[in-house]
């Protein structure tokens, strides 16, 4: 395998529009992304960054593709950890597909390097973020509410 790649899927009882809003709305995001949030105007070519609760940039890059409410692709590089930053840009793609009774969200995060530490680092976080989005959209509450700052573990 020449690249590192993870794929996550989750089915959420909501509409593609509401899910798109959940992925791009700052206030919504702060509730499910453990205190961090993204800053962007979500248009292709625009800058994007993931910000810790204290304002420091966690990750940054740009929006590669933005087709509401179907597909969002972000060119994504770590900014706070030198070892991860050195790996360069990863690609994170959100695909939203309506199914009979729910909406399927697929997150594909990849980097053109075998054994990428960045992809490994985000791999633990995505399932929790997705579970939180699902819970928030379906019940109005997140399942895990605590703020997690990955810098503390480093």
């Amino acid at each position: 395998m020449s690249k590192s790649e993870f794929i996550y899927t989750i089915y959420i009882k909501t509409t593609p529009e509401k899910l798109w809003d959940a992925l791009t709305n700052v206030e919504f995001m702060k509730q499910y992304w453990f205190g961090t949030h993204c800053e962007s105007d979500w248009r292709a070519g625009s800058s994007w960054r993931l910000v810790f609760a204290d304002g420091q940039t966690a990750d940054a890059g740009e929006i590669v593709e933005s087709v509401a409410p179907k597909r969002l692709a972000i060119r994504w590089r770590n900014e706070w950890n030198p070892e991860l930053k050195e790996e360069g840009y990863s690609l994170c793609v959100f695909d939203i597909e309506p199914t009979d009774s729910a909406v399927k969200l697929t997150v594909t995060h990849s980097l053109d390097k075998e054994g990428s530490k960045l992809i490994e680092a985000v791999s633990g976080g995505w399932p929790q973020v997705l579970s939180n989005i699902k819970s928030l959209l379906e019940t109005g509450q997140v399942v895990l509410a605590q703020h997690v700052d990955c810098r503390e573990k480093a």
């Binding site: 790649e5 993870f6 794929i7 996550y8 899927t9 989750i10 791999s123 995505w126 399932p127 929790q128 997705l130 579970s131 699902k134 399942v143 895990l144 509410a145 605590q146």
Partner: peptide, 20 residues
């Protein structure tokens, strides 16, 4: 690809609460 999301849901449902 392994999709760990359903297992995470089991985790958050029964263990996450205690972890918190």
């Amino acid at each position: 690809y392994l999709n760990p999301v359903p297992i995470n849901e089991i985790y958050t449902r029964w263990i996450g609460k205690f972890e918190r």
